Simulated assay, not measured.
Amino acid sequence: MVTMLSRPGCHLCDDARAVILRVTGELGVAFEEVDITTDPKLEEEYGEQIPVTLVNGRQHDFWRVDEGRLRAALA
């Protein structure tokens, strides 16, 4: 499972989403996106790192998603 923590209007989130959707789609891995602006705790913890990518609930990347690194983590 890949989770992306994001916020509306974030251009880095748009870039990360495209990579994550491509990789998870090809590998058949579940993907969810969480808007941190709906949760003050998430906003406080991750607000400066958005987007944050979690793989199986553990932080994998922030700001940018490296496609090769994500594929390796999901292999």
Score class of each variant (00 low, 15 high):
Leu5Ile: 05
Ser6Val: 06
Ser6Trp: 06
Arg7Met: 12
Arg7His: 12
Pro8Cys: 08
Cys10Trp: 13
Cys10Ser: 14
Cys10Asp: 08
Cys10Ile: 08
His11Arg: 10
His11Gly: 07
Leu12Gly: 14
Cys13Glu: 03
Cys13Lys: 08
Asp14Phe: 07
Asp14Thr: 11
Asp14Tyr: 09
Asp15Ala: 13
Arg17His: 13
Ala18Glu: 11
Ala18Gly: 02
Ala18Tyr: 02
Ala18Phe: 02
Val19Glu: 09
Ile20Met: 15
Ile20Trp: 14
Leu21Val: 03
Leu21Cys: 08
Leu21Gln: 13
Leu21Asp: 08
Arg22Tyr: 01
Arg22Leu: 03
Arg22Pro: 01
Val23Thr: 09
Thr24Val: 14
Gly25Asn: 05
Gly25Glu: 03
Glu26Cys: 07
Glu26Tyr: 05
Val29His: 03
Val29Ile: 12
Ala30Phe: 10
Ala30Ser: 15
Phe31Gln: 11
Phe31Thr: 07
Glu32Val: 11
Glu32Ile: 07
Glu33Ala: 15
Glu33Tyr: 12
Val34Thr: 10
Asp35Pro: 10
Asp35Ser: 12
Thr37Pro: 03
Thr37Val: 02
Thr37Ser: 12
Asp39Phe: 04
Asp39Arg: 10
Pro40Glu: 12
Lys41Gly: 09
Lys41Tyr: 08
Leu42Val: 13
Glu43His: 11
Glu43Pro: 00
Glu43Gly: 02
Glu44Ala: 15
Glu45Gln: 15
Glu45Cys: 02
Glu45Met: 10
Glu45His: 08
Gly47Tyr: 04
Glu48Leu: 13
Glu48Phe: 12
Glu48Gln: 06
Glu48Trp: 04
Glu48His: 04
Gln49Trp: 03
Gln49Arg: 14
Ile50Gln: 07
Ile50Trp: 04
Pro51Gly: 12
Pro51Cys: 07
Val52Gln: 00
Val52Ile: 11
Thr53Glu: 01
Leu54Lys: 01
Val55Tyr: 00
Val55Phe: 00
Val55Gly: 00
Val55Asp: 00
Asn56Phe: 00
Asn56Ser: 13
Asn56Gly: 15
Gly57Ile: 00
Gly57Tyr: 00
Arg58Val: 05
Arg58Trp: 01
Gln59Tyr: 04
Gln59Ser: 08
His60Trp: 00
His60Lys: 01
His60Thr: 00
Asp61Ala: 15
Asp61Thr: 05
Asp61Ser: 15
Trp63Asp: 07
Arg64Pro: 01
Arg64Ile: 01
Val65Asn: 07
Val65Met: 05
Asp66Glu: 03
Glu67Ile: 05
Glu67Asp: 11
Gly68Cys: 05
Arg69Lys: 13
Leu70Asp: 04
Arg71Asp: 06
Arg71Ile: 12
Ala72Met: 05
Ala73Gln: 02
Ala73Pro: 02
Ala73Phe: 11
Ala73His: 05
